[in-house]
Write a protein that binds this DNA or RNA. Structure first.
Length: 671
RNA sequence: GCCACUGUGGCUUAGUUGGUAGAGCAUCUGAUUCGUAAUCAGAAGGUCGGGAGUUCGAAUCUCCCCAGUGGCUCCA
């Protein structure tokens, strides 16, 4: 007999060999709804037999672990369905992911339209209610089972120690190499939806085979699936690419170029407000603004190491006119030109991929003493990178972008305080914008690798500084070994867009490399020359990406201080034109962004029109308002307040803008 | 860059088996002067993403580009 401890603490006695399913049924009844179980905290199938004293706990489909198992099992079902419909396909891997599951197949490309048939087949297989069975096999047996599938064999080669066996999961005729656990039978997988088909490289390696990847969703109930699909529809509506167009925030023109953002007047307001806001905090923190040009000599980037090592991600260099002409006359080919540049035989200019070399040169432009440090140079610097065409997307992945960049030149023992300062800035701004849903990655070195510059004890110190800083934020953060840049550890801020894709925004990076490459020095209090350390930091990454994320964060409903037009004045009839002009003037005098509609549409029509641009307030002016020098306000949600005095409104509005309230709040909510 | 899909006036879109484009909104012109999500009437606006080809004839079929969408790799 064995003793089994249940989650509520009770201990039951059972015969050896009893399964998890039986234990759970015994404890809470037949309709327990569990998908799998945990024995001593480790996940396993419901069919797992128990042979010693242990604790047992059921995993419900509603839990994070449960939904993960459901997704993983749905991936198997997908593979089973694809194999029935396309017998020549080879299944490779099919994991659960954050938002569902996918499975990669080596097969002829599928079209989106093929998904319906596969989905139908999956539902049919689910209904047939196959038992999902775990089978342990020896290495030899595994190799026999998957002899026809080189991908599975590769996994066996990589993941298994010589001589070790592993498990497969069978449902009907179909089986897959897998550790599990899985749902007990396929009837749990009725509520699925295949969402897209795309391609992926085997093991994410561009050099290797291209596979067909099918993405899908699964939920435990029909309602949950419906709700998820509805949520996805809702999310689409706040996509910054759609809102950017509706709200006239930015424009991308194919005649200008892929991934090049044109900030239209309304979007430019948002960017300018953000930059002003950031700048005010930079001044407070002792930063100094600088301006540097968009290009620099190739040699500069040879010294910094950007050229030719990152050549793939840069625009090709610009060559001086005379030189270009001479080379062309000599019959020089593009390939030869490129080689001459690489070897340094000829010079040219590069569109800057980063701001640091220019800032380094400002540092080096005069002798520095320890008394000058930390030197903090800030610039909203526009940089250009050659992103792969398939990667470019809206404002979040572009080829020209403006970083809220700064470089701090510090002494060794100033690192920690300065990194903390950078973090503080991020925190302030995220708080004001109400962005709480971000995570922090601390990239540390891989102690076994030799690719890093700088000596280990200094790394130790810098990594400690990064950890301390991340800790101080009070949000989710993770240490990621091997994710440091070769030149120093870093802290990255990551947010999700409405589709659930993660984007890196800000970054703080400690750098021992550039000061070395540019031979930067400062004179210490010992009279000797010392090497400063650099900190690169762009708390928001780029204005483009940050605004893109922000549009989605606010769903286009920006707080009053940020929204492109704060008040839209709407007249009831022609009689009120003059009063409208006066109100508009008085507000503009205070720096408020105002738009006036005194046209001859009906009031309803005007409201409908202006609603689309999401001003903080619509100011309605008619007889009553004109007579009493008041205004009536309409909020975005349709709530209204009538006849508040113009003076009062001006005052309240200025307070709301000045204090950067999170949302317009001058119209009290009517239930 | 690779795979799949998409591309019709500023926006949203109709266009059946190939017979040289329809609509709504926006715009402009009149009329209307109106109290909180579309007042009425009229006009103008498209080489159907670009180029080449098949055909008597192409928005519709073929090929090549360009751009967008969803992914793969990297990154702000």
């Amino acid at each position: 007999m064995i003793h089994v401890t249940l989650p509520d603490g009770t201990v039951n006695e059972y015969a050896v060999g009893i399964t998890c399913a039986e234990v759970i049924t015994d404890a809470i009844g037949k309709k327990h709804g569990c998908l799998a179980a945990k024995v001593n905290g480790a996940q396993c199938d419901l069919s797992t037999a128990l042979d010693m004293n242990c604790s047992v706990e059921g995993i419900l489909s509603e839990s994070d672990e449960g939904i993960h198992i459901l997704r993983h099992s749905a991936a198997h079902l997908l593979a089973q369905a694809v194999m029935e419909l396309y017998p020549g396909a080879l299944p490779t891997i099919g994991p659960a992911i954050d938002r569902g599951f996918y499975y990669d197949f080596a097969m002829d490309p599928l079209a989106e339209g093929d998904l319906k048939a596969i989905e139908k087949k999956m539902q049919e297989l689910a209904r047939r209610n196959f038992t999902v069975e775990r089978v342990e096999l020896s290495e030899g047996e595994l190799r026999d089972h998957f002899a026809h599938n080189p991908y599975k064999i590769e996994i066996i080669d990589d993941k298994l120690e010589d001589g070790d066996g592993s498990t497969i999961y069978k449902q009907g005729e179909w089986y897959d190499l897998c550790l599990g656990p899985h749902v007990p039978n396929t009837s749990r997988l009725m509520f699925i939806k295949l969402t897209s088909v795309s391609s992926a490289y085997w093991r994410g390696d561009q050099e290797r085979e291209q596979l067909v990847r099918i993405y899908g969703l699964v939920e435990p109930t029909k309602d949950a699936l419906k709700a998820t699909l509805r949520r996805m529809e809702e999310a689409k509506k706040r996509d910054h690419r759609k809102l950017g167009k509706d709200l006239q925030l930015f424009h991308i023109d194919e005649d200008v170029g892929q991934g090049l953002i044109l900030w239209t007047p309304r979007g430019a307001v948002i960017r300018q407000e953000l930059q002003d806001f950031i700048s005010s905090h930079l001044r407070r923190q002792g930063y100094q603004h600088v301006f540097t040009p968009h290009i620099g000599k190739l040699d500069l980037y040879r010294t910094s190491g950007h050229f030719p090592y990152y050549q793939e991600s840069q625009y090709p260099p610009l060559v001086e006119r005379e030189l270009m002409k001479k080379l062309a006359d000599e019959g020089c080919t593009c390939g030869e030109l490129s080689n001459l540049m690489k070897t340094g035989e000829i010079d040219g200019y590069m569109l800057k991929p980063m701001n640091c070399p220019h800032h380094v040169k400002i540092y080096a432009s005069q002798p520095r003493s320890y008394r000058n440090l930390p030197l903090r140079l800030a610039e909203f610097g526009t940089v250009y990178r050659w992103e792969q065409s398939g990667e470019i997307s809206g404002m979040t992945r572009v080829r020209g972008f403006t970083q809220d960049d700064a470089h701090l030149f510090v002494t060794e023992n100033q690192i920690e305080a300065e990194v903390l300062g950078c973090i503080e800035l991020v925190q302030i701004i995220f708080n004001v914008l109400g962005m709480t849903d971000y995570r922090v990655r601390v990239g540390l070195r891989d102690p076994d690798s030799t690719k890093y510059v700088g000596d280990p004890s200094r790394w130790e110190q810098a990594e400690h500084a990064c950890r301390t800083a991340a800790e101080s934020l009070g949000v989710e953060w993770s240490e990621e070994e091997g994710e440091a840049a070769f030149y120093g550890p870093k802290i990255d801020f990551v947010v999700k867009d409405v589709i659930g894709r993660e984007w890196q925004l800000g970054t703080v990076q400690v750098d021992y490399n550039l000061p070395e490459r540019f031979d930067l020095t400062y004179k210490g209090n010992d009279g000797e020359l010392h090497r400063p350390v650099m900190i690169h930091r762009a708390p928001f990454g780029s204005m483009e990406r940050f605004c893109g994320v922000l549009i989605e964060h606010f769903a286009g409903k920006f707080p009053t201080w940020l929204t492109p037009t704060q008040c839209h004045i709407i007249t009831i009839s022609e009689k009120h034109k003059a009063y409208a002009a006066r109100v508009a003037d008085e507000l503009r005098e205070l720096g408020v962004r105002v738009e006036v509609d005194d046209g001859d549409d009906t009031v309803g029509k005007k409201i409908r029109t202006h609603r689309k641009l999401q001003p903080a307030y619509m100011v309605i002016l008619g007889d009553g308002e004109m007579e009493h020098e008041t205004v009536s306000l309409r909020a975005r949600n349709g709530d209204q307040i009538a006849d508040i005095s113009l003076e009062q409104f001006k005052q309240d509005l200025l307070t709301e803008i000045g204090e950067k309230h999170s949302q317009p709040s001058l119209v009290p909510a009517t239930e």
